[in-house]
Design a protein around this nucleic acid. Structure first.
Lengths: 259, 259
DNA sequence: CCCCTCCTTCCATTCAACGGAAGAGGATTA
DNA sequence: TAATCCTCTTCCGTTGAATGGAAGGAGGGG
């Protein structure tokens, strides 16, 4: 049953993800569901073009050329540009890992990140997606997401650590408080040893993103961090309103943008 | 004369670059040298997969999925990680645009950048390439590049602004001073209104990258900026030495990494 | 030395890709 | 309103590029 070559080549690329950044030919073939000989030919072509590169051990990784291409993508570029200075300020003030994220379908998509020196186990990377219910930015985005999104997410609360909130009622209550108090927190719900705070970023009345930090412990400094985050979020919002260009690509109005 | 579908699809992607971040179907077909009907079919497939996205006006841009893929590429990740905090420090201290770049073949490849609020006309973007002879980081990398690279670059000094150094002898003299004094400068050689300073980043005795800044004017603050840069560069070098992982992908030992 | 895994090459068959041509949509001009 | 010029989309008979099973290295570990 014939599938187009193009989609097969793309499937090979799609075999890479955050957990599989380096794959052998056999792995690639297996993950893309292709016969080895076919994978061999296609991977060769991708490699020749620069889409894939080889590591010293022969495994394949995403190549420099795809990296360059990807950087041309207008992914929330308006938002990122507006946010950049504020993220630096935040980082300078708190020295914590700072995140800017938007909702993409039913997940959180991290679009900017400043990594702190502090060794907190942070899972997120720019370009990675995480579940909404276990991250600070996720809870914020979920709190302000359309009803239907909330319903669907609440239906599948996967457990990640022992502290992940998996009871819909409890999460709903948390989301209510997020809306009431203006910020969300997590405590080791995504990875042990990491807590987070996050606040919404608004353009006008619409929440377009979430701004968050990851720290080893929240207890003592919560009010200070919330204030800092809110100041930054307000600044970003104001900058967004000031900028004329309505950026393309909203925070994922439809679930699962790519099919 | 048949060419593989895969390479045609890749050629379509290759039609995008820093100056063409958004293309109509017709443009894509023209730039990739494909019949319109063929381009239409392939672009459709790329779009369906998420490699391309459409702007409101129907033009195509690089899609979110390629953006995510590209971010998985191990492009100097060790260096970037080591440099990140120092770049922030530099930015915090000087509020100028800060650059981290490596040599890739005969060009400079920008791998990290912190954009200042200050409105200086900066051309570089992360992932972009610029000629070595007209940028601060480029002069540094050229000064420490293998003889053969220097020779080839000196052979084609293209003029970009009225101030670009295009006489081989003059550039050679500048490179000699870079090695002697430990830093390079440019004055509106790449874009009018922008000056730059840069210093080498060493791992052991090898120059593996260049660290630079762009400012509107150098005169008054040159010594201060050079000091700040050198402190940061030393810090990065020390961090690199400390880190065990020898990162893949050097600063472009061979010209033109991708064929 | 044998066996196992992973990679590479080969080549006859066939099915997906091809692209010219015609049509749809939209904008601008007469 | 019609005519003209874009760019985009669809169609379909022909053909040659893609296919993948099989066989042949290459390494390496027992």
């Amino acid at each position: 049953m014939g599938v187009s070559v193009t989609s097969r080549a793309l499937d090979l690329l799609g075999a890479f993800d955050g957990e599989h950044r380096s794959l052998s030919l056999t792995d690639l073939a297996r993950r893309a569901g292709l016969p080895l000989a076919t994978a061999h030919r296609l991977v060769g072509e991708l490699h020749r073009w620069g889409a894939l590169a080889r590591e010293p051990n022969g495994d394949y990784v995403i190549g420099r050329r795809l990296w360059q291409l990807g950087l041309l993508a207008p992914v929330q570029s308006g938002l990122r540009q507006a946010a950049s200075p504020f993220l630096h300020d935040l980082y300078g003030t708190t020295l914590a890992t700072v995140h800017l994220a938007v909702r993409d379908g039913l997940e959180v998509l991290y679009i900017e990140r400043l990594a702190g020196h502090v060794s907190v186990p942070v899972v997120s990377r720019v370009g990675s997606r995480l579940p909404m219910h276990a991250t600070g930015v996720g809870k914020v985005l979920l709190a302000y997401a359309p009803e239907e999104v909330r319903t669907e997410v609440l239906g599948r609360l996967t457990r990640i650590t022992a502290y992940t909130v998996t009871q819909p009622a409890r999460l709903l209550e948390q989301l209510r408080r997020v809306r009431a108090e203006g910020y969300a927190t997590t405590g080791e719900e995504m990875s042990l040893g990491a807590c987070s705070v996050a606040v919404p970023v608004r353009r006008g009345d619409t929440v377009v993103a979430a701004l968050g930090m990851v720290v080893p412990d929240l207890r003592r400094q919560l009010p200070r961090l919330v204030s800092a985050l809110q100041v930054a979020a307000n600044g970003i919002g104001r900058t967004l309103n000031a900028s004329v260009e309505w950026n393309s690509g909203l925070a994922g109005a439809r679930p699962a943008a790519e099919g």
